[in-house]
Computed example of a mutant assay.
Amino acid sequence: MKSVKILILLMLAMFGNVYAQTESAILGAWESDKKDVRIEIFKHGDKYYGKYLWGKEIVESDGVTSKKDVKNPDEKLRSRNLIGITSLTGLKWEGKEYVDGKIYNAPSGDTYKCKIWIKNDKLYLRGYLGFSLLGQTATFHRYRQ
Rank of each mutant, 00 (worst) to 15 (best):
M1G: 13
M1H: 14
K2M: 15
K2T: 15
V4A: 14
K5G: 15
I6Q: 12
I6H: 14
L7T: 13
L7C: 15
L9H: 11
L10M: 10
M11S: 15
L12F: 07
L12E: 07
A13Y: 05
A13F: 08
M14I: 15
M14H: 15
F15A: 14
F15I: 15
G16S: 09
N17K: 14
N17P: 09
V18L: 12
A20G: 12
Q21A: 15
Q21H: 11
Q21V: 09
T22K: 11
T22Y: 10
S24Y: 11
I26H: 04
I26C: 05
I26T: 05
L27Q: 06
L27W: 07
L27T: 06
G28P: 01
W30L: 03
K34H: 10
K35Y: 08
D36R: 07
V37A: 10
R38D: 00
E40L: 04
E40Y: 04
I41H: 01
K43P: 04
H44F: 15
H44S: 14
G45D: 07
D46G: 12
K47P: 06
K47R: 10
Y48P: 02
Y48D: 03
Y48Q: 03
Y49E: 03
Y49S: 02
Y49G: 03
L53H: 02
W54E: 02
G55H: 00
K56Y: 09
K56E: 13
I58P: 00
I58A: 00
V59I: 04
E60R: 10
E60M: 11
S61R: 11
S61I: 11
D62E: 07
D62W: 04
K68M: 02
D69N: 06
N72D: 03
P73M: 00
P73A: 00
E75N: 11
L77H: 13
S79R: 09
S79Y: 09
R80D: 09
N81A: 10
I83T: 05
I83V: 06
G84P: 00
G84W: 00
I85L: 07
T86K: 05
S87N: 12
L88N: 07
L88M: 11
T89M: 10
G90K: 06
G90C: 03
L91H: 05
K92I: 09
W93M: 08
W93A: 07
W93E: 09
E94S: 12
G95L: 02
E97A: 07
Y98K: 00
V99E: 08
V99L: 06
D100A: 13
G101E: 06
I103K: 01
Y104G: 02
A106R: 03
S108L: 08
G109D: 02
D110S: 12
D110E: 12
Y112C: 04
Y112S: 03
K113V: 08
K113T: 11
K113I: 08
C114R: 04
K115M: 07
I116D: 02
W117S: 07
I118D: 00
K119H: 12
K122C: 08
K122R: 11
K122Q: 12
Y124F: 08
L125N: 01
R126A: 00
R126T: 06
R126F: 03
Y128G: 02
Y128N: 01
G130Y: 04
F131L: 15
F131A: 15
F131T: 15
F131C: 14
S132I: 04
L133D: 09
G135F: 04
Q136V: 13
T139G: 08
T139Y: 10
R144F: 15
R144I: 14
Q145D: 13
Q145H: 14
Q145G: 14
Q145I: 14
